[in-house]
Write a protein that binds this DNA or RNA. Structure first.
Lengths: 186, 186
DNA sequence: GTCTATACGAAGATAGAC
DNA sequence: GTCTATCTTCGTATAGAC
């Protein structure tokens, strides 16, 4: 409704939210129009290639937040334990306490898979490298650090799916709470 | 093409496969028609309420296979270790070595979420109880058995998501391989 | 039980006025 | 930059012949 002054950034944020919560194929232009307060034609003004452009913008926006907030916390100053605690704290914010889905899950299915799978794979790999680097500092060899980093990503993704299926974010919150110690356990 | 003699069971299996791989919203009647070799009208003959009926049939079919094969293995004769090994072996078959998605993931988003979320939650809870029961036999108290059972489901779901995003089923296969020992570890 | 034909609305996209 | 109008295609669903 307050369409008048809505920055592009805010528009993209709302679009992102719709894609996260309804998936690519489940998000219609009508829905995006309502979520942003912009008419369909106005959406095409900002995103000439329509839905695909909007999804690309959502991918870029969420990627930027992830790098600037979540990865920044993971790569901040401090001990591995401190860095992992900062990391999981930011993850919780990023996923709204587990109440929203991950684009990696949502965009790896249906019409979006064809468009974005390559980027999704790169992002997963990149996150895995970053987590593994912290675990290397903590003393694990490269293979074990990589294995644990992959487990961390698997656990995050899985807890989001299970939380969504149960309609209860407790699994997500528990997983994040236990993650630093689990990753560093002997 | 070989539409002539395709049992209802085979039809439902093919429909299920489409939903698993493209999601509910991403699966059109045109796609289902092609996958089954049946014209759209013929699909309505078998499923009067259209797509929703087909999804319901897919849910029922996959649930039956899960109970008869996967849960049966989990609840078979033998030690907890033997039962968990039988379980993960059947899981691998069930998810086609990690090359297909889980309806719990796929149907908890978009248009299917409204229709099926209640059932998805029940199925997750039921599986959790079954795994926890095995872990109780292995000597874990109820709380710890439940916690580990939830972790198992989270890990399975997460490995499917990560495998799909990476376009590589190695994470799924590794997770299943390690699962029995992980669940029983002191 | 399957086919052809068709109705009908939704969805994605575009044109042009303002 | 937003709106109205329009267009096309797709998706869902139904009717009726065979």
């Amino acid at each position: 409704m307050p369409a008048a002054t809505l920055s592009r950034e805010e528009v993209v944020t709302r679009i992102l939210q719709e894609f996260r919560n309804h998936g690519y194929d489940g998000t219609s232009l009508a829905r995006l129009s309502q979520a942003t307060g912009l008419g369909r034609s106005s959406l095409y003004h900002y995103f000439p290639n329509g839905k695909e452009d909007m999804a690309t913008a959502a991918m870029a926006a969420v990627g930027e937040v992830f790098v600037n907030e979540v990865l920044a916390a993971l790569n901040s100053e401090g001990s591995p334990s401190q860095r992992l605690h900062a990391f999981t704290k930011q993850l919780s914010v990023f996923y709204q306490d587990g109440q929203t889905s991950c684009l990696t899950d949502v965009f790896s299915m249906g019409g979006a898979a064809v468009l974005f799978q390559k980027y999704l794979a790169l992002r997963v790999s990149n996150l895995m490298r970053n987590i593994a680097a912290v675990l290397s500092v903590a003393g694990f060899d490269k293979a074990e650090a990589t294995r644990r980093a992959e487990n961390a990503i698997i656990t995050i993704q899985g807890s989001l799916v299970v939380s969504r299926a149960l309609g209860d974010n407790a699994p997500f919150l528990r997983v994040l709470r236990e993650m630093p110690d689990t990753l560093l356990a002997a």
